[in-house]
Structures are given as structure tokens and as C-alpha cells.
Design a protein around this nucleic acid. Structure first.
Lengths: 329, 329
DNA sequence: TTGAAAGCGATACCAC
DNA sequence: GTGGTATCGCTTTCAA
């Protein structure tokens, strides 16, 4: 692959001059510029970004750590970061981290080795202390979907508790009395918070969620189906079901209808996240909108500006919003 | 950020030695090794991948060009590449390209600048000549979802024509006579090929697709709805509908049911791609499985081995497979 | 307007 | 075992 030296030699100029025309630097004679340009073209010269990164001390890359690219939620997150990356002319580097703390740490390290100036991290498993320490070492580090008080200025997060509350109030306003919930069985904060908010607001409405009306399982379509089957098997009737996420909600609807319950006539179902699936399901899913793409954009903006030692003025904390579609009545 | 020099100075050894311990090189005394390790840790030293890439002439990165990260189909593609990248200890760089030839070219150039040894490209718009030339310059370049005869060894593709055929035969075997199709209106090969295969196999079964029974629109949920409305508005009855992709198929089902047609009792619908959506829809979608994740994995393996000047023995051409679910009868 | 040369942070070859 | 040093491809003063 042709280097700047090759171009310089063939064009009969110094590498400094070639560098100037590559970087559209000023003060290059029209004739020299044309000559260099034509040689560059002839040789198929492409500047080496690694060499450039080394000398300029900036990699013009933004790194992203997420668990899984194929999950629509994370795909939306990545897409948000990508949009800002494009706008800012930086390359997107993705590091996926299977579900473990070490794996998350390793994914981050890879991005640090590349010297990404900005790094967005979706980490549910890394210890707070590790994250705090990391954020001190790396100015452009931003946490998404996680709130750590002492570094809250480096976080972009959603109020999960309030999400649970909104769901509860919606059911209450619809007059439901017999209420159930299918939750994620992962040991992270989100399921706990959503359930807690749900419970809290139910109490305010003089309603309550019986303990055996909560069924936990994997936060997937299948998990939603199984959790719902268990609920049904318990024999206790319910007319309102709050699901941890859209996938579980759609699994629930599937199981409910297979068992002769109509949604929403017999049972109302609320999902969470408002991923693309919720608009493709039938009935279309009532759910809590998680503005992940917008949040990711802001996280990226924030990361980039922190990296540049600037002040970005973006919203960092978000509230989920109820999207009423067809699965509740 | 601490460099190898800092570590060497503090540890009282040469940078060569530090380099040896970083790279687990042989012949380093236990005492020196421990000393260096502890200093590295103390200083929070992380090797600079850019510098390393410069001297070793290998970036240990794999680049991917796709139009859009948020589309489930491309998310699955990216996920496949990511898996191989992880296995091979290379970083994934993603360049998205909005729908234009220049934009695709630009996305590729960015990856070339980074000196990605392997590059997977999903390009529908770049001219064949450009792609051929590019593949000559870059040994690790692989095309996915595109077939170019003269560089077929660098392509991983699906037989779209056969996909159309399979759909037609399925309808024929079910005894359908009145057949319709909603197709993508993008000017790329895929819609043409799928329709052509569909027509061809229909003819073999002594069936035919009337010209006014083909409705084109955007390959999206909305596009599927609109295309189906137009079909319905024409007044001609049909009992079988072949959709360009799953999103259009689900849009079609939605419109059909809103107009009082039951799926599959009144109308059978076949989708294409078998993206995650198809399992979440109700009725679950009968569709043609597009093994994009596996294809992406093979493309990545192929790209990496071409980059290393080796021979990878992987499947490059795929046939779609009919997945019978609930939307056809 | 152009060129010479000093690095950026690492690797790897050659001595000792 | 360990150290010295040329080198990767480029940017950026400093001179001319």
C-alpha cells in the first residue's frame, strides 16, 4: 500500500508538502497541489489513520460497549451513537460484552487500547467502584442506562421506578383490580426498580399486587410465555399484566390467546421499551417508550464533548412515556 | 496516558524488556517480569494499539459496511461478523452508508484508512467495476448479499430467484389460484429476482400472476400496508400474497385483518428474511429464512483468511429455506 | 511556498 | 536475559 513517501518521491516533492495537500493545509502552490493530487490518485494513496492517530494523539474514534448487537434495543442504541459519530466524523468501534463483569471490563480495555477519545458504556455488571475509577482515567467516558450518584454528570439514564408507576396508574385508570406482573429474573437493578415503582403506585391507588401474582423468567419472548403459563397455572384470575419488556409482553399475549383469553378484552398487557417489535405485534402493544436512540445520541454528544474538554448541554435523565396502543383497555 | 517509556523508566529497564513482558515474549527473568508488571499496574499502562498497528503493519480490526444498524436484518448481519471478530481477537469497526453510491464508497474508504485487514461490504449501489477494482486492491475484501461473477470467490450471497420459486411452489401445493405480490420499489436486483423466480415457478404450475396483482412500495411495515390497500382497492380477489420481506408481510396482515380478511383462512401470506419480527407477529409468519447471521459469519471468516493469504473453506452461496408457521394454509 | 528533521509509541533485530 | 536502536507513516515546528 502506497505511503506518503511514495507519493512524495513520485511527485518530486517533500513528504511535508504531501501532508499539506492531504490535510488541505494552506500555502501550497496550485501547480504542486495538482501534481501531488494526481500522483496520489495514480498510486491509490490512502492516508494511514493509525500513523496519523499516533502523531496527532487523537484517534477520531468513538467506542461503544454493549452486550449484544442483535437485540433490537441495543441495535437502536448503537444506531443512535452511530448517527452522532457520523455527524462528528469519527469512526464507530463496537465491543460486545457477554454477560459478565470481566467480559465488560475486557471490552472496555480493547477500546482504551485503541485510544478512542469517547467511550459509551452500557454496563450492568461492573462494580460501581470500577466504573468510577475508569471515568477518572478516561475523560470521554459516559455510562448509558446506569446511574451512579457520584459521577452522575457522566451518566445518561432512564427512571425505571417511574416507569413502573406509570404502568400502575394506567391500569388503575382503566379500573383494573386483579393485577399481575411478569418480571425479568436477571440480578440487575432494572427489574427491581420497575416492580417497586409498580407496587408503590398501586398502593397509592388502594390496589395491591399479590406476591404470587409476580412471575419471573428470562426477559425474552419465551420467558414471557413461560412466566405467563405459570401465572395461569396458579389459577388466580387477573385482568391486567405488566411485563418487564416488550418481548415478554408479546410472549404473554401469545400464551394468553392460546389459552382462550382475548387481549385486551379479557386481559390488558403493558410492555416496556417500545422496541420495534411492539409496533409489529398484533394487537399492537401498549408500552412504555424508552427513548434509547435519543439517549444514545446524547450520550455520544456528551462523551465527545467531555473528550474535548468542553461543556455539552444535553438532557441526561429521561422519563419513560406511556404509548397507548391496542393491548390495554 | 502512560507509555512504554514511562514504564521502562520507572521499572529501571529498557523499553525492549517492557515490550517483551507485554507481549508475553520468552526469556524474561521472573524478577524483572514481576517488577515490570507491577509498574504497569501502578501506572495504569495500556498499550497503544495505533502504535502497535503502525509497526506491525496489522491493525487487528475487521470493518463492516452496512446501510443501517437499527434494521433487524443488518443488526443480525453485524452480530454474525462480531462473533467471528471476537473469536479471532479483532476489533469490529462499523461504517454505515446511507443509500447512495458515494456514501458507500466513503464508508469503505474510512475502513481502508484504518487499515482494517478484513472488510465485509454490503453494497447494493456501488458499480460492479468499482467493487472489482477495490477487491483487487484489498485482499481481505468480501461482498455480502451481492454476486459478481468475476469475483465470485469474494462473494457470499443468497439465491433470491430460488426464494421466489419456493414461495410459488408453496402456494401451489396449498391449492391457491388467485395470487398476488407486494414488492419493494427500490431499484436493486433483489426485488426483481424474487419476483422473477415467483413468476417462473408459478408458470410451471400452470398458474399466473396478473400484472395488476403486483403492488410496489417501500419495503417497510407502512409500505406493506399501503401496497396491500392498493391491491384491495383494485377489487380483484386473491387468496395468496407473497411479500418482499417480513416487514411488508406484517403490514399486509395488519391491513388484511383491518379489512375483515382472516390470515391464513382467507388469505395466506409469505414473508421473506425470517427476521426476528416474524416470530413475534400474530399469526406467526410463514417466511423464507435468510440465514444472514451464518452468512455474515462465513463472510467474516473468509475475509480474515483472505487477508492472511490463506484458504478458508466455507459455504458462499445460500438457498433460502421455507419456514412454515401460521400465516399460510 | 517548500523542505529537513524531530518525534508519536510501539516492535524486532542485533549485540552483548 | 537484557539493552540499543532502526523503523512503521504521518504531523508539525523551524528554517530557508
Amino acid at each position: 500500500m502506497a505511503t506518503i513517501k511514495d507519493v512524495a518521491r513520485v511527485a518530486g516533492v517533500s513528504i511535508a508538502t504531501v501532508s499539506r495537500v492531504v490535510n488541505k493545509g494552506p500555502k501550497v502552490g496550485q501547480r504542486t497541489r495538482d501534481k501531488v493530487l494526481s500522483v496520489m490518485n495514480e498510486l491509490g494513496y490512502t492516508p494511514n489513520a493509525n500513523a496519523r492517530a499516533l502523531v496527532t494523539q487523537k484517534s477520531t474514534t468513538i467506542g461503544l460497549v454493549i452486550p449484544d448487537l442483535s437485540d433490537p434495543f441495543f441495535a437502536a442504541l448503537a444506531s443512535g451513537v452511530d448517527k452522532i459519530a457520523k455527524d462528528s466524523n469519527v469512526q464507530l468501534l463496537i465491543s460486545t460484552s457477554s454477560m459478565s463483569a470481566e467480559s465488560e471490563k475486557q471490552a472496555i480495555d480493547l477500546l482504551v487500547e485503541r485510544r478512542c477519545e469517547a467511550i459509551i458504556i452500557h454496563s450492568k455488571l461492573l462494580a460501581e467502584t470500577t466504573l468510577i475509577e475508569l471515568s477518572q482515567r478516561i475523560p470521554g467516558l459516559i455510562l448509558i442506562d446506569r446511574f451512579i450518584e457520584s459521577i452522575n454528570d457522566r451518566c445518561v439514564w432512564l427512571d425505571n421506578l417511574e416507569g413502573g408507576r406509570i404502568a400502575a396508574r394506567h391500569f388503575a385508570s382503566l379500573g383494573h383490580k386483579q393485577i399481575a406482573c411478569i418480571n425479568s429474573n436477571y440480578s440487575i437493578d432494572d427489574p427491581k426498580l420497575r416492580l417497586e415503582g409498580f407496587r408503590l403506585a398501586l398502593v397509592e391507588q388502594a390496589l395491591k399486587l399479590e406476591n404470587d401474582m409476580v412471575s419471573e423468567n428470562e426477559p425474552s419472548l419465551k420467558g414471557g410465555e413461560i412466566a405467563t403459563q405459570k401465572l395461569l397455572a396458579s389459577g388466580k384470575p387477573f385482568s391486567a399484566l405488566f411485563a418487564y419488556n416488550d418481548a415478554m409482553a408479546i410472549g404473554a399475549i401469545s400464551t394468553l390467546e392460546d389459552n382462550g383469553f382475548k387481549v385486551p378484552q379479557d386481559v390488558s398487557v403493558i410492555g416496556f421499551d417500545d422496541v420495534i417489535l411492539s409496533r409489529y405485534s398484533r394487537p399492537k402493544l401498549t408500552t412504555l417508550h424508552y427513548p434509547i436512540e435519543e439517549m444514545a445520541q446524547n450520550a455520544a454528544k456528551l462523551a465527545l464533548s467531555f473528550a474535548a474538554n468542553e461543556q455539552a448541554d444535553v438532557v441526561r435523565n429521561y422519563l419513560p412515556r406511556l404509548i397507548k396502543r391496542e393491548s390495554t383497555a
